[in-house]
């Protein structure tokens, strides 16, 4: 029998549940830590970002309308599929220069991290919501709601754990995400996209753009239909002026520990809604 000729993967964007190339036709080379060419990945343009925001917006209400229990299960299913692709994630990390031991450890932590966040879907209200003892005959309570569409600048390091640690707190509450990645996290992101596409996550809930974060972020920060931008993984060169543009629609700007995990990190992408109703008869 002839030796199997490997079939190389085409690395594309992930928008609205499908895998388009960049509308710009651009690609960029992804090299391994040893300098081997691993892929010609799609280099997202501002128009790809626009399409991703559109997809995220149209998916958002439906995702948020799911029951928290259901969102938790859908996200848990992602961990199940990741588990089945452990070898692929590990190999991606080794390609990026991790030792096999470090790669395995990061994959383990990443899957566990995702499971941890999935479990928050139906517990957030307990921890972040309140019933408020106001003066007067009113029942008054405060509960969290997703802020809407969030653009996430994924951290380069750690490539997989950082990516998942920033996406999970966005989507668990019902936000949808447009994730801008590049550099060392590109392959992890594309692999994650394939996981998401084969899981139960509805199209548009997580959209993944590979390319130059520094090119995409100013467009995201200025986009009037984006509610929040997570700059945790923003490149150092991002100009103050670009960040200032977030004020044009009063975006919520988030910067966090790329490896951290906390319900308060979910809280960064939530709005608190307070409801009053009289108590009478």
């Amino acid at each position: 029998m002839a030796e199997h000729m490997p079939v190389d993967k085409t690395f594309k964007l992930f928008i609205g549940g499908v895998f388009p190339r960049s509308e710009s036709g651009r690609t960029f080379q992804v090299h391994s830590a040893d300098g081997d060419l691993l892929a010609n990945a799609a280099q997202a343009s501002r128009k790809d970002l626009r399409e991703a925001v559109r997809a995220a917006r149209s998916a958002q209400a439906g995702w948020a309308d799911r029951t928290a229990y259901n969102r938790g299960q859908v996200l848990y299913r992602v961990a199940e599929v990741m588990e089945s692709r452990r070898a692929e994630f590990t190999s991606v990390l080794i390609d990026m220069g991790h030792s096999p031991g470090d790669a395995t450890a990061e994959v383990d932590r990443s899957i566990d991290r995702w499971v941890w966040y999935a479990g928050w879907a139906d517990k957030l209200h307990h921890v972040l919501g309140t019933v408020n003892p106001v003066v007067g005959p009113y029942f008054n309570f405060t509960f969290p709601e997703p802020t809407g569409v969030v653009v996430v600048a994924a951290p380069d390091d750690p490539p997989l754990l950082g990516l998942l640690s920033r996406i999970a707190p966005v989507v668990v509450s019902g936000n949808t995400a447009v994730v801008a990645t590049g550099g060392p996290s590109t392959l992890a992101a594309v692999t994650l996209a394939e996981v998401l596409a084969t899981s139960d996550v509805p199209g548009g809930v997580v959209n993944i753009l590979t390319g130059e974060k520094g090119e995409l972020l100013p467009w995201a920060l200025g986009h009037m239909d984006v509610n929040s931008v997570d700059l945790t993984g923003a490149p150092d060169g991002l100009e103050d002026e670009a960040v200032a543009a977030a004020a044009d629609n009063v975006k919520r700007i988030v910067r966090a520990d790329p490896e951290g995990a906390s319900p308060y990190m979910i809280g960064d992408f939530l709005e608190m809604k307070t409801v009053w109703h009289p108590i009478g008869r």
């Binding site: 309140t130 106001v134 003066v135 008054n140 608190m272 307070t274 409801v275 009053w276």
Partner: peptide, 13 residues
């Protein structure tokens, strides 16, 4: 505000 309006309280976000 449901069946009321412009109510405020220090305990209410």
């Amino acid at each position: 505000w449901a069946n009321t309006y412009n109510q405020f309280d220090p305990a209410s976000p």
